[in-house]
Amino acid sequence: MSAEQRLQELGIVLPAAPVPVANYVPAVRTGNLLYVSGQACVVDGEMKYTGKVGKELTLEQGYEAARIAAINTLAIVKQELGSLDRVKRVVKLLGFVASDLNFFEQPKVINGASDFFAEIFGDSGRHARSALGTNVLPFNTPVEIEVIFEIE
């Protein structure tokens, strides 16, 4: 099943691709790789969640924030390529989690994005990954992800 069909089957409608908020582009294509700039949990132009996971937010809310960031990432991929079916595989995901000092479950938070990519792309959605904790992220978002895709 194609990625586009899988989104439709799950009832997921991609939003308009988020617009950069500073001096950068949403994605850069070089050869058969597409590098997507960092994405947060923005829905309809507003941050869905704010704060630190383990303090203002639960692990489950952090997971959902990562899933939303992954959906926004795919919106950029579709804008750049015209179709998600041109994605050959998800190569690498780098995830940052704004965390309370006593929160150590960053990998479980970033699973929100990893699980989503596997759900859409199957085995081609499984990827190399880093999940890092940090004290703060831009605009008080709890999660930011950046992703590298291999494309056809």
Rank of each mutant, 00 (worst) to 15 (best):
L59I: 11
L74G: 09
L34K: 12
A16L: 13
I76N: 04
R86E: 03
L84V: 03
K55I: 08
T134A: 14
L7T: 08
L74W: 05
D44F: 12
K48P: 04
G122R: 06
D85K: 03
Q106H: 14
N140F: 00
G82E: 01
V136K: 04
L10A: 03
P26K: 07
S114F: 09
F103A: 00
A128Q: 10
L10H: 02
D85C: 09
P107I: 06
V28Q: 13
E9D: 05
N140M: 03
V13C: 11
K78V: 00
R126A: 06
I151R: 06
I148P: 04
A66R: 08
S83N: 06
T134Y: 03
F104V: 02
E146T: 15
T134H: 04
R129N: 11
V36W: 09
E80P: 01
S124G: 01
L81N: 04
R86A: 10
E56C: 09
F104H: 14
A22F: 11
Q5F: 11
S2Y: 11
G11S: 03
E150P: 13
L14A: 11
K78I: 00
R89D: 00
K88I: 06
L137W: 07
F121K: 08
N140T: 01
E119K: 07
E152G: 14
V90Y: 05
E4N: 14
L84C: 10
Q8F: 07
I68F: 07
K48Y: 12
S37N: 15
G133S: 15
I76F: 03
F104Q: 05
G95I: 12
E80I: 01
I120D: 05
Y35M: 14
P142L: 07
L7Q: 04
E56K: 13
E4H: 11
E146F: 10
E144L: 11
F117C: 07
D100C: 01
Q8E: 15
C41P: 10
N32C: 08
A113V: 04
L57E: 04
A66D: 10
G31S: 08
K92V: 02
E152P: 12
E146K: 14
H127I: 03
